[in-house]
Amino acid sequence: MAVTAETIRSASVDPLIIAGKAYASRLLVGTGKYKDMNETRRAVEASGAQIVTVAIRRTNIGQNPNEANLLDALPQSQYTYLPNTAGCYNAEDAVRTCRLARELLDGHDLVKLEVLGSEKTLYPDIPQTLKAAEILIKDGFKVMVYTNDDPVVAKRFADMGCVAVMPLAAPIGSGLGIRNPYNIRFIVEEATVPILVDAGVGTASDAAVAMELGCDGVLMNTAIAAARNPVLMAQAMRKAVEAGREAYLAGRMPRKLYGSPSSPLGGTIF
């Protein structure tokens, strides 16, 4: 590790690098489930995120064309969009969605691939995700892939050319936190591309734990959007991701079973 705790005071020396582009923030956020566009914008700003996920959907024919637009609320000049394939249950739909996103966003090729296999658990369909990833990479896309917390599968995605691998911590939208920290650890140890926990984070400590495990970043949506005060939670998540990252770089003390005094024992008055 080239970066030490002493040099990390400024985020600019410890950037998250995805597909050759550096980002000061290691927190990526979704833009769904907010009350309105204003709340979306305020929460995203408070999170400090530079990469935001967006969904691609059919337009409602006849809707008010002046309705608040996501692309206006979060301008592409300030944020890196990460179009996702959320809601896709097969490779073909995911590939179509990415191609439409590229057309919509003028050639933008960074995408989040997510192919779901179960409506109940929202677990990914790995065979379909592999198939879609292969087609998309061949087609020139930079693929950040949502996957389960299987270290063998994670490595496969990295080897085939995905620019980031994003294992779930718990089911999407569950807020259950890091259910299997050992698997996340395995994935991080084997990593050749950035590893981001995507899905399952419920509160700030979960995000900190993900970062302390050595993840390169965290992607979340519901944990912020479904909080009682989303803007405040967005700020908490920003701090948690930064704190977790610094703790990881600092290197924690070894765990001990018994107490160990931190004041000198010599010179006591008794």
Binding site: V29, G30, T31, G32, K33, Y34, M37, T40, T53, V54, A55, I56, R57, R58, T59, I61, L70, L71, Y81, P83, N84, T85, A86, G87, C88, Y89, D93, A94, R96, T97, L100, A101, L104, L105, E114, L122, Y146, I172, G173, D198, A199, L219, M220, N221, T222, A225
Partner: peptide, 20 residues
């Protein structure tokens, strides 16, 4: 003809993918 645009989204959007 399918016409799509970008909306707020993370995961678990209930809407279907274009064409389905």
């Amino acid at each position: 003809v399918e016409v799509v645009f970008a909306i707020g989204g993370g995961s678990r959007q209930m809407a279907v993918a274009p064409g389905r």
